[in-house]
Design a protein around this nucleic acid. Sequence first.
DNA 1: TGGATTATTATGTACATACATATTAAACCT
DNA 2: AGGTTTAATATGTATGTACATAATAATCCA
Lengths: 230, 230
Amino acid sequence: MTAITWQSVQAEALRRIRSREWPPGGQIPHEADLAEELGCARATVNRALRDLAEAGLLERRRKAGTRVPLNPVRKATLDIPIIRQDVESRGQSYGYRLLARKTAPPPTDIAARLRLPSDARMIHILALHLANDTPFCLEDRWVNPVAVPEMAQADLSTISANEWLVQNAAFSAGDFAFGAIAAPRAIAEHLGCPENAPLFTVDRTTWAAALPITSVRLCYAPGHQMTAEI
Amino acid sequence: MTAITWQSVQAEALRRIRSREWPPGGQIPHEADLAEELGCARATVNRALRDLAEAGLLERRRKAGTRVPLNPVRKATLDIPIIRQDVESRGQSYGYRLLARKTAPPPTDIAARLRLPSDARMIHILALHLANDTPFCLEDRWVNPVAVPEMAQADLSTISANEWLVQNAAFSAGDFAFGAIAAPRAIAEHLGCPENAPLFTVDRTTWAAALPITSVRLCYAPGHQMTAEI
DNA sequence: TGGATTATTATGTACATACATATTAAACCT
DNA sequence: AGGTTTAATATGTATGTACATAATAATCCA
Protein backbone atom coordinates (compact mmCIF):
# COMPACT_ATOMS: atom_id res chain seq x y z
CA MET A 1 0.00 0.00 0.00
CA THR A 2 1.79 3.08 -1.20
CA ALA A 3 -0.67 5.93 -0.91
CA ILE A 4 1.88 8.65 -1.57
CA THR A 5 2.87 9.15 -5.18
CA TRP A 6 5.17 11.76 -6.62
CA GLN A 7 2.08 13.33 -8.17
CA SER A 8 0.47 13.75 -4.78
CA VAL A 9 3.65 15.30 -3.42
CA GLN A 10 3.69 17.63 -6.39
CA ALA A 11 0.05 18.56 -5.83
CA GLU A 12 0.77 19.35 -2.20
CA ALA A 13 3.79 21.47 -3.19
CA LEU A 14 1.65 23.33 -5.72
CA ARG A 15 -0.97 23.95 -3.07
CA ARG A 16 1.63 25.45 -0.76
CA ILE A 17 3.01 27.66 -3.50
CA ARG A 18 -0.44 28.91 -4.43
CA SER A 19 -1.60 29.40 -0.87
CA ARG A 20 1.64 31.31 -0.18
CA GLU A 21 2.45 28.95 2.61
CA TRP A 22 5.67 28.98 0.61
CA PRO A 23 5.82 32.68 -0.29
CA PRO A 24 7.27 34.03 -3.54
CA GLY A 25 10.98 34.60 -3.14
CA GLY A 26 11.10 32.34 -0.13
CA GLN A 27 13.02 29.16 0.48
CA ILE A 28 11.18 25.91 1.01
CA PRO A 29 12.20 23.01 3.29
CA HIS A 30 14.79 20.73 1.81
CA GLU A 31 14.01 17.35 0.37
CA ALA A 32 14.91 15.28 3.39
CA ASP A 33 12.63 17.28 5.68
CA LEU A 34 9.75 17.17 3.23
CA ALA A 35 10.18 13.46 2.75
CA GLU A 36 9.99 12.89 6.47
CA GLU A 37 7.04 15.24 6.90
CA LEU A 38 5.06 13.66 4.08
CA GLY A 39 6.14 10.16 4.95
CA CYS A 40 7.83 9.16 1.73
CA ALA A 41 11.29 8.62 0.30
CA ARG A 42 13.49 11.53 -0.72
CA ALA A 43 13.51 10.26 -4.30
CA THR A 44 9.76 10.78 -4.45
CA VAL A 45 10.05 14.38 -3.27
CA ASN A 46 12.91 14.89 -5.70
CA ARG A 47 10.86 13.72 -8.65
CA ALA A 48 7.97 16.00 -7.69
CA LEU A 49 10.07 19.12 -7.15
CA ARG A 50 12.32 18.52 -10.14
CA ASP A 51 9.25 18.45 -12.34
CA LEU A 52 7.97 21.71 -10.89
CA ALA A 53 11.36 23.30 -11.45
CA GLU A 54 11.27 22.23 -15.09
CA ALA A 55 7.90 23.94 -15.43
CA GLY A 56 9.40 27.14 -14.02
CA LEU A 57 7.45 27.06 -10.76
CA LEU A 58 10.46 26.47 -8.54
CA GLU A 59 14.15 27.28 -8.70
CA ARG A 60 16.60 24.73 -7.43
CA ARG A 61 20.31 24.98 -6.87
CA ARG A 62 22.64 22.55 -5.20
CA LYS A 63 23.46 23.46 -1.66
CA ALA A 64 21.48 26.70 -2.00
CA GLY A 65 18.21 24.82 -1.83
CA THR A 66 14.84 25.34 -3.47
CA ARG A 67 12.94 28.60 -3.67
CA VAL A 68 9.75 30.00 -5.17
CA PRO A 69 10.72 32.49 -7.91
CA LEU A 70 9.38 36.03 -7.60
CA ASN A 71 8.56 36.27 -11.29
CA PRO A 72 8.16 32.75 -12.54
CA VAL A 73 8.98 32.26 -16.21
CA ARG A 74 6.27 29.82 -17.10
CA LYS A 75 6.96 27.25 -19.77
CA ALA A 76 4.32 26.49 -22.34
CA THR A 77 4.56 23.38 -24.45
CA LEU A 78 3.93 23.72 -28.13
CA ASP A 79 3.12 20.70 -30.27
CA ILE A 80 4.75 20.83 -33.69
CA PRO A 81 3.03 18.25 -35.86
CA ILE A 82 3.57 17.88 -39.57
CA ILE A 83 1.13 20.07 -41.46
CA ARG A 84 -0.92 17.17 -42.78
CA GLN A 85 -1.62 15.96 -39.28
CA ASP A 86 -2.36 19.51 -38.18
CA VAL A 87 -5.06 19.79 -40.84
CA GLU A 88 -6.45 16.31 -40.30
CA SER A 89 -6.69 16.77 -36.54
CA ARG A 90 -9.01 19.68 -37.24
CA GLY A 91 -11.27 17.26 -39.03
CA GLN A 92 -10.52 18.71 -42.45
CA SER A 93 -9.33 16.99 -45.58
CA TYR A 94 -5.71 17.61 -46.45
CA GLY A 95 -4.46 18.62 -49.84
CA TYR A 96 -1.02 19.48 -51.15
CA ARG A 97 0.43 21.13 -54.22
CA LEU A 98 4.07 21.46 -55.16
CA LEU A 99 4.42 24.88 -56.81
CA ALA A 100 8.13 25.05 -57.57
CA ARG A 101 11.33 23.18 -56.99
CA LYS A 102 14.72 24.26 -58.22
CA THR A 103 18.35 24.48 -57.29
CA ALA A 104 19.61 27.99 -56.68
CA PRO A 105 21.86 30.03 -54.43
CA PRO A 106 19.95 31.20 -51.35
CA PRO A 107 19.08 34.81 -50.54
CA THR A 108 21.56 36.37 -48.17
CA ASP A 109 19.34 36.24 -45.09
CA ILE A 110 18.72 32.51 -45.50
CA ALA A 111 22.41 31.87 -46.12
CA ALA A 112 23.33 33.87 -43.03
CA ARG A 113 20.77 32.07 -40.88
CA LEU A 114 22.18 28.71 -41.94
CA ARG A 115 25.78 29.94 -41.80
CA LEU A 116 26.37 28.90 -45.38
CA PRO A 117 28.17 30.87 -48.11
CA SER A 118 25.73 32.86 -50.21
CA ASP A 119 26.88 31.06 -53.37
CA ALA A 120 26.07 27.62 -51.94
CA ARG A 121 23.83 25.42 -54.05
CA MET A 122 20.55 24.84 -52.25
CA ILE A 123 17.18 23.34 -53.10
CA HIS A 124 14.36 25.84 -53.07
CA ILE A 125 10.85 24.51 -52.61
CA LEU A 126 7.54 26.32 -52.77
CA ALA A 127 4.45 24.37 -51.83
CA LEU A 128 0.86 24.98 -50.86
CA HIS A 129 -0.98 23.04 -48.18
CA LEU A 130 -4.75 22.90 -48.44
CA ALA A 131 -7.51 22.23 -45.93
CA ASN A 132 -10.86 21.26 -47.41
CA ASP A 133 -9.49 22.39 -50.79
CA THR A 134 -8.86 25.96 -49.63
CA PRO A 135 -5.35 27.34 -49.07
CA PHE A 136 -4.14 26.63 -45.55
CA CYS A 137 -0.45 27.37 -45.50
CA LEU A 138 2.29 28.33 -47.93
CA GLU A 139 5.65 26.63 -47.41
CA ASP A 140 8.74 28.45 -48.65
CA ARG A 141 11.71 26.24 -47.93
CA TRP A 142 15.45 26.11 -48.55
CA VAL A 143 17.20 22.79 -48.07
CA ASN A 144 20.91 22.10 -47.77
CA PRO A 145 21.55 19.15 -50.14
CA VAL A 146 24.78 18.34 -48.30
CA ALA A 147 22.76 17.45 -45.22
CA VAL A 148 20.16 15.33 -47.01
CA PRO A 149 21.57 14.15 -50.36
CA GLU A 150 18.71 11.64 -50.75
CA MET A 151 16.32 14.55 -51.22
CA ALA A 152 17.45 14.95 -54.83
CA GLN A 153 15.63 11.69 -55.61
CA ALA A 154 12.58 12.36 -53.46
CA ASP A 155 9.24 12.72 -55.20
CA LEU A 156 7.92 15.87 -53.62
CA SER A 157 4.75 16.01 -55.68
CA THR A 158 2.99 13.42 -53.51
CA ILE A 159 4.65 13.93 -50.15
CA SER A 160 5.44 17.40 -48.85
CA ALA A 161 8.99 18.43 -48.07
CA ASN A 162 7.75 19.04 -44.55
CA GLU A 163 6.74 15.43 -44.14
CA TRP A 164 9.65 14.01 -46.11
CA LEU A 165 12.18 15.79 -43.95
CA VAL A 166 10.53 14.79 -40.67
CA GLN A 167 10.76 11.18 -41.80
CA ASN A 168 14.17 11.27 -43.45
CA ALA A 169 16.30 13.96 -41.88
CA ALA A 170 17.98 13.30 -38.56
CA PHE A 171 17.71 16.67 -36.98
CA SER A 172 19.00 17.38 -33.54
CA ALA A 173 18.18 21.00 -32.83
CA GLY A 174 16.14 23.84 -34.20
CA ASP A 175 14.67 27.20 -33.50
CA PHE A 176 11.36 28.84 -34.22
CA ALA A 177 10.25 32.42 -34.65
CA PHE A 178 6.62 33.42 -34.76
CA GLY A 179 5.55 36.71 -36.25
CA ALA A 180 3.24 38.53 -38.60
CA ILE A 181 3.73 39.99 -42.08
CA ALA A 182 1.62 41.80 -44.63
CA ALA A 183 0.98 39.43 -47.53
CA PRO A 184 3.12 40.37 -50.55
CA ARG A 185 1.37 40.13 -53.90
CA ALA A 186 2.85 36.73 -54.84
CA ILE A 187 1.94 35.09 -51.55
CA ALA A 188 -1.52 36.66 -51.49
CA GLU A 189 -2.25 35.09 -54.87
CA HIS A 190 -1.26 31.64 -53.72
CA LEU A 191 -3.25 31.90 -50.51
CA GLY A 192 -6.19 33.50 -52.24
CA CYS A 193 -6.29 36.47 -49.89
CA PRO A 194 -6.05 40.24 -50.41
CA GLU A 195 -2.63 41.78 -50.83
CA ASN A 196 -1.26 43.07 -47.50
CA ALA A 197 -3.55 40.82 -45.48
CA PRO A 198 -2.00 40.09 -42.06
CA LEU A 199 -0.47 36.61 -42.09
CA PHE A 200 0.76 34.57 -39.16
CA THR A 201 4.23 33.23 -39.97
CA VAL A 202 6.50 30.60 -38.54
CA ASP A 203 10.20 30.67 -39.39
CA ARG A 204 11.98 27.48 -38.57
CA THR A 205 15.60 26.44 -38.90
CA THR A 206 16.85 22.96 -38.14
CA TRP A 207 20.29 21.46 -37.66
CA ALA A 208 21.94 18.07 -37.46
CA ALA A 209 24.59 18.92 -34.90
CA ALA A 210 26.56 21.68 -36.63
CA LEU A 211 25.26 20.85 -40.10
CA PRO A 212 22.41 23.09 -41.29
CA ILE A 213 19.53 21.12 -42.79
CA THR A 214 16.78 23.49 -43.74
CA SER A 215 15.21 26.88 -43.19
CA VAL A 216 11.55 27.36 -43.88
CA ARG A 217 8.91 30.06 -43.64
CA LEU A 218 5.33 28.97 -43.26
CA CYS A 219 2.74 31.63 -44.11
CA TYR A 220 -0.69 30.70 -42.82
CA ALA A 221 -3.93 31.87 -44.38
CA PRO A 222 -5.52 34.91 -42.70
CA GLY A 223 -7.25 34.16 -39.41
CA HIS A 224 -5.15 31.13 -38.59
CA GLN A 225 -4.18 30.67 -34.95
CA MET A 226 -1.64 28.40 -33.34
CA THR A 227 -2.48 27.23 -29.84
CA ALA A 228 -0.53 26.07 -26.82
CA GLU A 229 -1.31 25.08 -23.27
CA ILE A 230 0.34 25.54 -19.96
CA MET B 1 32.94 5.02 -10.48
CA THR B 2 29.64 5.29 -12.30
CA ALA B 3 30.47 6.10 -15.89
CA ILE B 4 26.96 5.57 -17.20
CA THR B 5 24.50 8.37 -16.58
CA TRP B 6 20.92 8.61 -17.76
CA GLN B 7 22.11 11.37 -20.10
CA SER B 8 24.59 9.02 -21.75
CA VAL B 9 21.87 6.39 -22.13
CA GLN B 10 19.65 9.03 -23.66
CA ALA B 11 22.39 10.11 -26.05
CA GLU B 12 22.91 6.52 -27.15
CA ALA B 13 19.16 6.08 -27.67
CA LEU B 14 19.05 9.29 -29.73
CA ARG B 15 21.96 8.04 -31.81
CA ARG B 16 20.14 4.82 -32.55
CA ILE B 17 16.97 6.65 -33.49
CA ARG B 18 18.82 8.99 -35.82
CA SER B 19 20.96 6.28 -37.38
CA ARG B 20 17.78 4.23 -37.94
CA GLU B 21 19.29 1.39 -36.02
CA TRP B 22 15.88 1.79 -34.39
CA PRO B 23 13.78 2.50 -37.49
CA PRO B 24 10.71 4.75 -37.53
CA GLY B 25 7.64 2.75 -36.64
CA GLY B 26 9.73 0.00 -35.11
CA GLN B 27 9.81 -1.35 -31.63
CA ILE B 28 12.92 -0.99 -29.51
CA PRO B 29 14.27 -3.44 -26.92
CA HIS B 30 12.59 -3.25 -23.58
CA GLU B 31 14.13 -1.58 -20.58
CA ALA B 32 15.50 -4.69 -18.91
CA ASP B 33 17.39 -5.74 -22.04
CA LEU B 34 18.77 -2.28 -22.64
CA ALA B 35 19.85 -2.00 -19.02
CA GLU B 36 21.74 -5.26 -19.28
CA GLU B 37 23.26 -4.37 -22.65
CA LEU B 38 24.42 -0.96 -21.51
CA GLY B 39 25.44 -2.17 -18.08
CA CYS B 40 23.25 -0.01 -15.89
CA ALA B 41 20.10 -0.26 -13.79
CA ARG B 42 16.67 -0.33 -15.33
CA ALA B 43 15.77 2.88 -13.52
CA THR B 44 18.51 4.65 -15.44
CA VAL B 45 17.17 3.45 -18.77
CA ASN B 46 13.68 4.37 -17.66
CA ARG B 47 14.68 7.93 -16.88
CA ALA B 48 16.39 8.32 -20.26
CA LEU B 49 13.54 6.88 -22.33
CA ARG B 50 10.79 8.60 -20.34
CA ASP B 51 12.45 11.92 -21.08
CA LEU B 52 12.62 11.14 -24.80
CA ALA B 53 8.96 10.16 -24.77
CA GLU B 54 8.07 13.49 -23.17
CA ALA B 55 9.90 15.25 -25.99
CA GLY B 56 7.86 13.29 -28.52
CA LEU B 57 10.77 11.22 -29.83
CA LEU B 58 9.48 7.91 -28.53
CA GLU B 59 6.08 6.44 -27.78
CA ARG B 60 5.72 4.27 -24.73
CA ARG B 61 2.81 2.13 -23.63
CA ARG B 62 2.63 -0.35 -20.84
CA LYS B 63 2.93 -3.89 -21.98
CA ALA B 64 3.04 -2.78 -25.62
CA GLY B 65 6.58 -1.49 -25.22
CA THR B 66 8.44 1.45 -26.71
CA ARG B 67 8.49 2.42 -30.39
CA VAL B 68 9.84 5.17 -32.62
CA PRO B 69 6.88 7.17 -33.96
CA LEU B 70 6.52 7.44 -37.74
CA ASN B 71 5.59 11.11 -37.61
CA PRO B 72 6.97 12.44 -34.38
CA VAL B 73 5.04 15.37 -32.93
CA ARG B 74 7.93 17.36 -31.61
CA LYS B 75 7.41 19.48 -28.54
CA ALA B 76 8.87 22.95 -28.41
CA THR B 77 9.15 24.79 -25.13
CA LEU B 78 8.11 28.40 -25.04
CA ASP B 79 9.26 30.66 -22.24
CA ILE B 80 6.53 33.02 -21.13
CA PRO B 81 8.19 35.74 -19.06
CA ILE B 82 6.44 38.84 -17.80
CA ILE B 83 6.67 41.59 -20.39
CA ARG B 84 9.06 43.71 -18.35
CA GLN B 85 11.56 40.88 -18.19
CA ASP B 86 11.05 40.18 -21.88
CA VAL B 87 12.04 43.76 -22.70
CA GLU B 88 14.89 43.91 -20.22
CA SER B 89 16.37 40.64 -21.43
CA ARG B 90 16.71 42.28 -24.85
CA GLY B 91 18.88 44.92 -23.22
CA GLN B 92 16.26 47.61 -23.60
CA SER B 93 14.78 49.92 -20.98
CA TYR B 94 11.27 49.09 -19.95
CA GLY B 95 8.45 51.60 -19.74
CA TYR B 96 4.80 51.23 -18.91
CA ARG B 97 1.67 53.34 -19.24
CA LEU B 98 -1.80 52.57 -17.94
CA LEU B 99 -4.21 53.86 -20.57
CA ALA B 100 -7.59 52.91 -19.12
CA ARG B 101 -9.12 50.99 -16.28
CA LYS B 102 -12.81 50.61 -15.69
CA THR B 103 -15.47 48.16 -14.63
CA ALA B 104 -17.77 47.04 -17.39
CA PRO B 105 -19.54 43.99 -18.79
CA PRO B 106 -17.28 42.05 -21.17
CA PRO B 107 -17.83 41.69 -24.92
CA THR B 108 -19.57 38.47 -25.77
CA ASP B 109 -16.50 36.68 -27.12
CA ILE B 110 -14.53 37.34 -23.92
CA ALA B 111 -17.48 36.26 -21.77
CA ALA B 112 -17.85 33.09 -23.77
CA ARG B 113 -14.18 32.29 -23.57
CA LEU B 114 -14.24 32.65 -19.78
CA ARG B 115 -17.62 30.93 -19.52
CA LEU B 116 -19.08 33.89 -17.67
CA PRO B 117 -22.48 35.53 -18.24
CA SER B 118 -22.21 38.48 -20.59
CA ASP B 119 -23.63 40.81 -17.94
CA ALA B 120 -20.90 39.91 -15.43
CA ARG B 121 -18.99 42.82 -13.93
CA MET B 122 -15.37 42.65 -15.04
CA ILE B 123 -12.34 44.90 -14.85
CA HIS B 124 -11.13 46.11 -18.22
CA ILE B 125 -7.55 47.26 -18.48
CA LEU B 126 -5.74 48.85 -21.39
CA ALA B 127 -2.02 49.40 -21.02
CA LEU B 128 0.99 50.10 -23.18
CA HIS B 129 4.39 48.51 -22.65
CA LEU B 130 7.40 50.42 -23.96
CA ALA B 131 10.92 49.38 -24.94
CA ASN B 132 13.46 52.20 -25.11
CA ASP B 133 10.51 54.63 -24.94
CA THR B 134 8.89 53.28 -28.11
CA PRO B 135 5.70 51.21 -28.09
CA PHE B 136 6.43 47.53 -27.64
CA CYS B 137 3.13 45.86 -26.85
CA LEU B 138 -0.46 46.81 -26.17
CA GLU B 139 -2.20 44.88 -23.41
CA ASP B 140 -6.00 44.61 -23.60
CA ARG B 141 -7.15 42.68 -20.57
CA TRP B 142 -10.36 41.57 -18.87
CA VAL B 143 -10.10 40.41 -15.27
CA ASN B 144 -12.67 38.50 -13.26
CA PRO B 145 -12.86 40.37 -9.91
CA VAL B 146 -14.37 37.31 -8.26
CA ALA B 147 -11.12 35.42 -8.82
CA VAL B 148 -8.81 38.20 -7.61
CA PRO B 149 -10.77 40.58 -5.35
CA GLU B 150 -7.54 42.24 -4.14
CA MET B 151 -7.07 43.68 -7.62
CA ALA B 152 -9.58 46.42 -6.86
CA GLN B 153 -7.02 47.95 -4.50
CA ALA B 154 -3.98 47.35 -6.70
CA ASP B 155 -2.14 50.40 -8.01
CA LEU B 156 -1.82 49.53 -11.67
CA SER B 157 -0.14 52.78 -12.64
CA THR B 158 3.26 51.63 -11.41
CA ILE B 159 3.04 47.87 -11.85
CA SER B 160 1.41 46.34 -14.91
CA ALA B 161 -1.59 44.06 -14.59
CA ASN B 162 0.56 41.46 -16.28
CA GLU B 163 3.13 41.56 -13.50
CA TRP B 164 0.59 42.05 -10.72
CA LEU B 165 -1.34 38.97 -11.73
CA VAL B 166 1.73 36.78 -12.08
CA GLN B 167 2.67 37.72 -8.54
CA ASN B 168 -0.80 37.71 -6.98
CA ALA B 169 -3.06 35.32 -8.83
CA ALA B 170 -2.80 31.61 -8.18
CA PHE B 171 -3.40 30.29 -11.64
CA SER B 172 -3.37 26.63 -12.39
CA ALA B 173 -3.99 26.33 -16.12
CA GLY B 174 -4.13 28.43 -19.23
CA ASP B 175 -4.14 28.41 -22.96
CA PHE B 176 -2.49 30.52 -25.60
CA ALA B 177 -3.34 31.35 -29.16
CA PHE B 178 -0.90 33.06 -31.51
CA GLY B 179 -2.06 34.84 -34.59
CA ALA B 180 -1.94 37.95 -36.70
CA ILE B 181 -4.36 40.85 -37.18
CA ALA B 182 -4.46 44.07 -39.16
CA ALA B 183 -4.07 46.96 -36.74
CA PRO B 184 -7.39 48.73 -36.20
CA ARG B 185 -7.23 52.53 -36.03
CA ALA B 186 -7.30 52.73 -32.20
CA ILE B 187 -4.55 50.17 -31.70
CA ALA B 188 -2.43 51.63 -34.49
CA GLU B 189 -2.50 55.01 -32.75
CA HIS B 190 -1.34 53.56 -29.46
CA LEU B 191 1.43 51.54 -31.08
CA GLY B 192 2.43 54.39 -33.38
CA CYS B 193 2.14 52.31 -36.51
CA PRO B 194 0.10 52.62 -39.72
CA GLU B 195 -3.50 51.49 -39.67
CA ASN B 196 -3.84 47.88 -40.91
CA ALA B 197 -0.20 47.11 -40.19
CA PRO B 198 0.22 43.36 -39.55
CA LEU B 199 0.51 42.73 -35.81
CA PHE B 200 1.57 39.58 -34.03
CA THR B 201 -0.96 38.78 -31.31
CA VAL B 202 -1.07 36.52 -28.30
CA ASP B 203 -4.42 35.65 -26.75
CA ARG B 204 -4.15 34.15 -23.33
CA THR B 205 -6.75 32.84 -20.91
CA THR B 206 -5.92 31.66 -17.42
CA TRP B 207 -7.84 29.72 -14.81
CA ALA B 208 -7.61 28.83 -11.15
CA ALA B 209 -9.08 25.35 -11.34
CA ALA B 210 -12.57 26.02 -12.74
CA LEU B 211 -12.55 29.71 -11.84
CA PRO B 212 -11.72 32.01 -14.75
CA ILE B 213 -9.14 34.65 -13.85
CA THR B 214 -8.33 36.70 -16.90
CA SER B 215 -8.33 36.87 -20.65
CA VAL B 216 -5.85 39.10 -22.40
CA ARG B 217 -4.82 40.04 -25.91
CA LEU B 218 -1.30 41.29 -26.42
CA CYS B 219 -0.71 43.17 -29.68
CA TYR B 220 2.97 43.53 -30.44
CA ALA B 221 4.45 46.35 -32.47
CA PRO B 222 5.07 45.50 -36.14
CA GLY B 223 8.11 43.33 -36.77
CA HIS B 224 8.05 41.67 -33.38
CA GLN B 225 8.92 37.98 -33.25
CA MET B 226 8.54 35.43 -30.51
CA THR B 227 11.13 32.67 -30.46
CA ALA B 228 11.30 29.13 -29.20
CA GLU B 229 13.79 26.29 -29.31
CA ILE B 230 13.55 22.59 -29.65
C1' DT C 1 -17.03 -19.32 -32.42
C1' DG C 2 -17.34 -15.53 -29.55
C1' DG C 3 -17.34 -13.31 -25.44
C1' DA C 4 -15.65 -13.10 -20.93
C1' DT C 5 -11.93 -14.39 -17.77
C1' DT C 6 -7.30 -15.02 -16.57
C1' DA C 7 -2.30 -15.00 -17.23
C1' DT C 8 1.56 -12.49 -18.91
C1' DT C 9 4.46 -8.72 -19.71
C1' DA C 10 6.53 -3.99 -20.25
C1' DT C 11 6.35 0.24 -18.32
C1' DG C 12 5.50 3.08 -14.03
C1' DT C 13 6.61 4.06 -9.48
C1' DA C 14 8.30 3.71 -4.46
C1' DC C 15 12.07 2.97 -1.37
C1' DA C 16 16.63 2.69 1.06
C1' DT C 17 21.12 3.43 0.28
C1' DA C 18 25.20 5.20 -1.52
C1' DC C 19 27.92 8.35 -3.68
C1' DA C 20 28.61 12.62 -6.95
C1' DT C 21 28.59 17.50 -7.55
C1' DA C 22 27.98 22.24 -6.97
C1' DT C 23 27.97 25.90 -3.82
C1' DT C 24 28.03 28.11 0.22
C1' DA C 25 29.89 28.87 4.77
C1' DA C 26 33.54 28.32 7.90
C1' DA C 27 38.18 27.99 9.04
C1' DC C 28 42.58 29.18 8.26
C1' DC C 29 46.73 31.41 7.30
C1' DT C 30 49.58 35.24 5.97
C1' DA D 1 41.51 42.20 6.60
C1' DG D 2 41.74 39.50 2.60
C1' DG D 3 42.44 35.78 -0.04
C1' DT D 4 42.80 30.63 0.04
C1' DT D 5 41.76 26.22 1.64
C1' DT D 6 38.58 23.16 3.82
C1' DA D 7 34.37 21.52 5.60
C1' DA D 8 29.44 21.27 5.38
C1' DT D 9 25.18 20.74 2.91
C1' DA D 10 21.30 20.42 -0.55
C1' DT D 11 20.40 18.70 -4.77
C1' DG D 12 21.55 15.20 -8.48
C1' DT D 13 21.97 10.59 -9.74
C1' DA D 14 22.79 5.32 -9.75
C1' DT D 15 21.31 0.80 -7.95
C1' DG D 16 18.53 -3.37 -6.52
C1' DT D 17 14.36 -4.65 -5.07
C1' DA D 18 9.57 -4.75 -4.82
C1' DC D 19 5.14 -3.96 -6.22
C1' DA D 20 1.47 -1.30 -9.18
C1' DT D 21 -0.80 -0.72 -13.48
C1' DA D 22 -2.24 -1.05 -18.06
C1' DA D 23 -2.70 -3.55 -22.04
C1' DT D 24 -2.06 -7.50 -24.65
C1' DA D 25 -2.19 -12.49 -25.32
C1' DA D 26 -3.89 -16.78 -23.94
C1' DT D 27 -7.36 -19.50 -22.03
C1' DC D 28 -11.66 -21.01 -20.91
C1' DC D 29 -16.43 -21.78 -21.16
C1' DA D 30 -21.09 -21.54 -22.97
